[in-house]
């Protein structure tokens, strides 16, 4: 099942609706990298609220999405990690270092504004 990617202003929102196969994840990565360039987006929000399991491949893909979109000029925020998922990730040592996280979509958009501003200032 592919992930719908919505455009909201200069932000792309990828809302994951159900458990994803590795192939779906790779497709998401490709699509986001492509759309960030095409739509001149400044930020990406990945919403994982619906996921109750995240494995190492999923976290690695999210990290590479963040790295790739940053190279294309957009910041990534992961939102909606469930408490159980958070505990599991930490126990596995998959802490998504260097990637911004937020409670939910609304919060994520706020964080994204901050991150984008910080980045603009850095330049």
């Amino acid at each position: 099942m592919s992930v719908p990617i919505l455009k909201q202003g200069d932000v792309l929102i990828a809302s994951i609706q159900s458990a994803l196969t590795d192939r779906d994840l790779l497709q998401l990565k490709d699509e986001l990298a492509e759309k960030v360039g095409r739509l001149r987006s400044r930020g990406v929000v990945i919403d994982v609220t619906a996921l109750d399991v995240m494995d190492s491949f999923a976290t690695r893909t999210i990290r590479s999405i963040a790295a790739a979109t940053r190279l294309r000029g957009a910041e990534t925020v992961v939102v909606g990690i469930q408490p159980e998922v958070a505990i599991a990730l930490v126990e596995l040592g998959l802490t998504l270092d260097g990637i911004a996280t937020a409670l939910d979509l609304e919060e994520g958009l706020d964080v994204l504004v901050e991150v984008m501003e910080a980045r603009r200032r850095d330049r």
């Binding site: 992961v78 939102v79 990690i81 408490p83 998922v85 958070a86 505990i87 990730l89 930490v90 126990e91 802490t95 998504l96 996280t101 937020a102 409670l103 919060e107 994520g108 964080v111």
Partner: peptide, 12 residues
């Protein structure tokens, strides 16, 4: 430390 890391994943 793990608790803090998990809380960060939830954006706190």
């Amino acid at each position: 430390i793990q608790t803090v890391a998990a809380a960060r994943l939830m954006g706190a």
